[in-house]
Write a protein that binds this DNA or RNA. Structure first.
Lengths: 230, 230
DNA sequence: GCACAACACGAGGGGTGCCTCACCTTTCGG
DNA sequence: CCGAAAGGTGAGGCACCCCTCGTGTTGTGC
């Protein structure tokens, strides 16, 4: 267990100990290749394919990114930052309902453009991961966006932040199905769901929401820990 | 390409040429094992595991079911029949909206109880498959259920039968996420979506529905035909 | 321009899963 | 009770993927 990893500047010079020039070049190729592979094939894309696409041996990939998650996190750090920024913008809007729409639409658009991010949004990183903090931040912002929309009266009062997971998961599969066939279909689904989210004329729901623990466990599981039945 | 397959009595005596007793026994074990494996692990469960669970050699499995789809179809024929029967019942109800609810709730419940059926419901079988006709029947019944609910005024007028695929796909992922953690969570999501489906809550949708061709292609793709990017 | 640390390489061991086929074993009709 | 046909078997070929590590290469500071 390596006690620490350098903050890992994504492309440019690093402060601590600048990589050798060939190392930096390979690292960049790997990240570009991974970005492309993950976008096309999802977060589970073969690392050997990534290395091949980067024009680099598999051992080199493992030298730079000992675990798949190291690669995943560097690849998606940027999009996660966009997501966070959008959430902050959404919270700053006067109309909380419009803020919610902006938040969800941006989130779904990020998912739709990148099957890797689609997977990434559905899971929860282990607490030791360096992006775990950003994920927590998104979570907190989401809570506030939902609560504000509820308080302003646009959002139905029985809707809780955990319900947003339904949107993420729904989209995850809808995008898998329609990607390349009907690239904007997800938006129709989103607005159907949003109509279900509105306060006006809401009907009672038959089940309580997920508890935070249930949500956490579900997202962890989608991440990787196999709880098989054996 | 064998020109025909016997209608394949699921467990009992077959009319054409009764299987040898050991063969029948093995066949039944295989079906039981496959039912269990598919229910736990989805339609992609390892066939070698299925054979092992049935206490039978892998070659025997392939002798009875030369292609995975042969096994899948026999396993899910029963549930598909239940689905069809429910759809017919839904159509016979006076209140079309309640019919729609019954139809969707039963469908989702079948999905929730069986990860294999969850996958199965999301795909379209190739036209040569022996259950393809039943799938077409479900599709037709779904169309009539939706149209009737629209005509009676409960369902929003801009909702088309193809939109039901959103529910199937959504649930597919939600069940993957929450199975064993929050076993009824899917119902909350279903009723949120249903609120979005009601005529009284409709707001304009930003995208046209999937065309039947798009839907068909999307479901075919989830089935298996890889359209890779190479 | 040298020497050594940093790095790249890729064969190879381990795992999983698909599917086939040559060779036994069992059943069942006569 | 026998023998032929139906059926069962599982090693093995193939493909994929994971990850490691001993060896060879290259950049860089002096």
């Amino acid at each position: 267990m390596p006690p620490e990893r350098a903050p890992a500047a994504t492309t440019a010079s690093a402060p601590a100990r600048p990589l050798r020039r060939d190392a930096q070049r390979n690292r960049d190729s790997l990240l570009a290749a991974a970005r492309a592979m993950f976008a096309e094939h999802g977060m589970q894309a073969s690392l050997e394919q990534v290395a091949k696409r980067a024009g680099v041996a598999i051992g080199t990939l493992y030298k730079h990114f000992p675990a798949r998650l190291d690669l995943v996190q560097e690849v998606f750090a940027g999009k996660l930052a966009i997501w966070v920024a959008t959430a902050e913008q959404a919270l700053s809007m006067d109309d909380a309902w419009e803020g919610l729409c902006l938040f969800l639409e941006t989130m779904c658009e990020l998912q739709a453009r990148d099957r890797g991010f689609n997977d990434f949004a559905s899971i929860r990183l282990p607490e030791t991961a360096c992006l775990a903090g950003q994920q927590t931040r998104i979570h907190d912002l989401g809570v506030r966006i939902v609560e504000r929309a509820r308080e302003q009266g646009g959002l139905r009062p029985d809707l809780v932040p955990e319900d947003l997971a339904f949107i993420i998961w729904s989209h995850s599969r809808i995008i898998e199905a329609t990607d390349g066939i009907a690239p904007h279909a997800w938006r129709r689904h989103l607005y159907l769901m949003l109509d279900g989210f509105r306060a006006e004329r809401a009907h009672p729901l038959p089940e309580p929401p997920l508890t935070p623990e249930q949500l956490y466990r579900a997202m962890l599981r989608l991440g990787g820990a196999d709880n098989s039945t054996d």
